[in-house]
C-alpha cells in the first residue's frame, strides 16, 4: 500500500525531507509519491511522516483513497462553518 498526494498540495516542501523511503519527489504541478517506494512508513515510524506534517487537509490520501487528514482535522474549522463563510464571500 502507498500514500498519494493530490492537487490540493501547495508545494511547501515540508514532507519531502521527512520521507524515510525517499519516495517523495518534486513534480509539476505538485509533489508526488512514488508508489513503488512508499511503505507508509511501516517499520520506521508510527505515523506516515508526510501526512503528519502536511498542513493541507485532504492533500494526502491513504491506500484506499481516503484523506488521511479530513476537512476540519488540521485547522479546527468545522467544515460547515468553512462552507458558510465561503458562500458568504462568493455572494458579496
Amino acid at each position: 500500500m502507498a500514500l498519494s498526494i493530490i492537487e490540493s498540495c501547495v508545494n511547501c516542501w515540508a514532507c519531502e525531507p521527512l520521507c524515510p523511503s525517499k519516495a517523495i519527489y518534486e513534480a509539476k504541478p505538485h509533489f508526488m509519491i512514488d508508489a513503488r517506494k512508499c511503505t507508509e512508513c511501516e517499520g520506521d515510524y508510527a505515523d506516515g511522516q508526510c501526512a503528519s506534517i502536511c498542513p493541507i487537509e485532504g492533500a494526502i490520501l491513504d491506500g484506499h483513497g481516503e484523506a488521511v487528514n479530513p476537512p476540519g482535522s488540521l485547522t479546527g474549522i468545522p467544515p460547515q462553518k468553512m462552507a458558510a463563510a465561503m458562500a458568504e464571500i462568493q455572494a458579496r
Binding site: N11, C12, W13, A14, I53, P55, L74, T75, G76
Partner: peptide, 12 residues
C-alpha cells in the same frame, strides 16, 4: 515554504 506548526491566524 515548509512549516512545523499551524497557527490559527495563518492559512498555508
Amino acid at each position: 515554504p515548509a512549516c512545523n506548526i499551524q497557527c490559527h491566524y495563518c492559512n498555508r
